[in-house]
Amino acid sequence: MDRKIRVLVAKPGLDGHDRGARVVAAALKDAGMEVIYTGLHQTPEMIVEAAIQEDVDVVALSILSGSHMSHFPKVRELLDAAGATDMLITGGGIIPAEDMKVLSEQGIGKLFGPGTDTREVVEYIRGEVSSRNS
């Protein structure tokens, strides 16, 4: 067996900065994961279609535009509808603590604020994926 953790990194919404997403993508790659990067301006439908086709373990969304309260739950809903209830959704952006709490109750994983040490993200993903697969 030659299993690898596969992560879809996507940027939904309208803002045009993907530096953060690229930094995380590079860190995950350096940690031995396969990162599928889909680029900017992705709709939730596009993200979910890609996640299904790529059979990823994790969907990581970078949202700076303030649209996190609509995008995260929408992606969760569409993934669940496609039968991918076990796919972890995580991500980052400027997200207030109370929003994080609400999202976590809706089946969204841990979300990371700006300036997070990427090693923290790597550890979190490794831990989650290994507990889901066992």
Binding site: K4, K29, D30, G32, E34, I36, Y37, G39
Partner: peptide, 9 residues
């Protein structure tokens, strides 16, 4: 590292 950055999409 065994990792890959797959960007064709």
């Amino acid at each position: 590292t065994g990792g890959a950055f797959l960007r064709d999409r």
